[in-house]
Computed example of a mutant assay.
Amino acid sequence: MQLFGLVLALVGFLSATTANAQFGFFDQMFGNQQQQQQQHHQQQNVRSDSSWYQAQYEGAHCSNYLCPGTLSCVSFPHHCPCAWETVEDKAELGDGIAVCASKGGYNVGETARKIELARKGLL
């Protein structure tokens, strides 16, 4: 009878340990996942002030003109590339001034055409 009680106590202990290990595993797994998501979310956030950008600008080395929007080093300000060339077109307005604007449609040069119409007051 003592052997039966000992076996029963051992089975109970092993069951409790196994259950704790299982739930501990899930807690650790899901807890870790939540912690990783929080860390990932924290890594994506950037400061809301301009000090980070200013530090990048001041730390950039350029012997000619440093484009403020892309931090590209070019010979002249109107040579600055657009920051998002896949969705923006650059249009030169004259006197060394260039602007980047959202692409105007499916036709090549449509952005420049619309900017020119706007300059003439026709758009």
Rank of each mutant, 00 (worst) to 15 (best):
C82Y: 07
K120N: 07
Q34Y: 02
W52C: 04
G94I: 04
Q28C: 12
A101V: 10
N107T: 07
Q22M: 09
Q35K: 07
G121H: 03
V108Y: 09
Y106D: 13
G24C: 10
S63R: 03
S51K: 10
G24V: 09
A16I: 15
N64K: 13
S48P: 11
S51P: 08
Q36L: 14
R113G: 02
P77Q: 01
T111H: 06
A83N: 13
Q39I: 10
Q56E: 10
D89L: 02
L6E: 09
S50C: 06
A101T: 07
A21G: 05
G96L: 07
G12C: 11
A98W: 03
K120D: 06
L6T: 10
D27N: 15
S75D: 10
A118H: 03
A60R: 09
A60C: 06
T17V: 15
F4L: 14
Q56Y: 08
L71N: 10
Q54Y: 02
T18G: 12
S50Q: 06
E116Q: 03
D95K: 04
L117S: 04
H61M: 10
T18L: 15
Q43M: 04
E110Q: 05
C62I: 00
Q37S: 10
A60E: 05
H79K: 02
L66Y: 02
V7L: 12
A21L: 15
A83V: 14
R113N: 04
Y57W: 13
Y106N: 11
N20E: 15
Q43C: 04
Y106A: 13
W52Y: 08
F26T: 13
A91I: 10
L117W: 04
H61W: 07
R119W: 06
T18K: 12
F30R: 01
S75N: 13
V74H: 00
R113D: 05
Q33R: 14
G105Y: 09
V108E: 11
L66E: 02
A9W: 01
A55W: 00
A101R: 09
P77R: 01
A112L: 09
A55E: 02
L66P: 03
D27F: 12
L3G: 08
C100Y: 08
I115Y: 07
S15N: 07
A9D: 01
F13L: 15
Q33I: 13
S72G: 09
G24S: 15
E116G: 00
P77V: 00
W84Y: 15
D89H: 02
E88Y: 03
V108I: 07
A101N: 06
A83E: 14
G12V: 10
L71K: 13
T111G: 06
G5W: 12
L122Y: 06
